[in-house]
Amino acid sequence: MKRIAENGAKDALAKHGGGPHDPGMDERVIRLEEWAKHSDQRMGRMEGALERIESRLDRIDLRLAELPTKRDLTNNTFAGLGIGLALMALIIGGIIGGLSYIKPDSPAPTPPPPVTITAPPPQIIYMQPPTPQVQQPAAPKQ
């Protein structure tokens, strides 16, 4: 192939090969060689880019390994909630205890005496059955 590039594309195949060939073949081969040279350069640039991407991905993996997981966040949330509730109970208990310590002791209120209702004892009344009364004749009027 170097021969073609050095001697020129004109009739390179016609001089060394025998038989029928496409007269534009020499120029096509030269273009393929140029394309292959540029392809090697492009592949080299792509390999470099892939290495940079790979190093970035490695750094991302390291950073992701340090981040908390969903389970960690859930556990921390519940722990914080439990601590908050415990502190709230402690504060409320302290306030109530402090107020009861400050308040002077007063005697317990005595209940009022019970109300007693006295009723007279029941009276039993015996009744006689009614006796029929006889009417006496009325006195004559004078």
Rank of each mutant, 00 (worst) to 15 (best):
R45C: 10
N75G: 01
V29Y: 08
K2V: 08
D72A: 03
T116F: 15
L57V: 12
P132N: 03
P111Q: 07
A65L: 03
H16N: 04
I83Q: 09
N7D: 13
I124R: 11
L64Y: 00
G18K: 12
G8S: 01
S55F: 07
A9T: 14
T116Y: 15
E54G: 03
P107A: 03
R63Y: 05
D58N: 13
F78H: 12
P132T: 14
P20T: 10
Y101F: 15
D61Y: 02
G17Q: 15
Q128V: 08
A89P: 00
G44P: 00
R42I: 11
D105W: 12
T110P: 01
G8L: 07
P121A: 05
I60V: 05
T74Y: 08
T110L: 09
P129N: 07
G80K: 10
E6K: 14
A12H: 13
M46W: 01
M46F: 09
P120G: 04
N7A: 12
D40W: 11
N75I: 10
P109Q: 02
L81E: 14
P129Y: 11
L99P: 01
M88D: 03
K37W: 15
L81W: 09
I83T: 09
K141T: 06
A5E: 09
K103Y: 11
T116E: 10
A139M: 15
A9S: 05
V134N: 10
S106W: 05
A79Y: 08
L50R: 09
L87D: 01
D72W: 05
R3F: 01
T69C: 00
E33R: 12
M43D: 01
D11M: 10
I30W: 07
I95M: 00
G24C: 03
Y126D: 09
D40E: 12
A65M: 12
A14W: 11
A108W: 02
D58S: 13
A49T: 06
P121D: 14
P130E: 07
S39M: 13
K70E: 15
D11S: 14
G93A: 13
K141M: 09
E27C: 03
D22E: 10
A108P: 07
L64K: 08
G48P: 00
I102R: 13
P140I: 07
L81A: 14
V29K: 01
Q135F: 04
G8M: 02
I60A: 06
M1T: 12
S39K: 11
P121Y: 12
A86Y: 07
L67H: 01
I30V: 13
P132C: 02
A108G: 07
G8K: 00
R56I: 14
A79Q: 05
A79G: 07
K141F: 11
R59S: 13
Q123L: 10
E54N: 09
L85P: 02
D105P: 03
A108T: 14
M88H: 02
I53W: 12
Q136V: 14
A12F: 15
A86R: 02
Q133C: 04
G17S: 12
G18A: 10
P113N: 08
S55P: 02
G80R: 08
I125T: 06
G94H: 04
P120I: 02
Y101S: 03
L90D: 04
I4P: 00
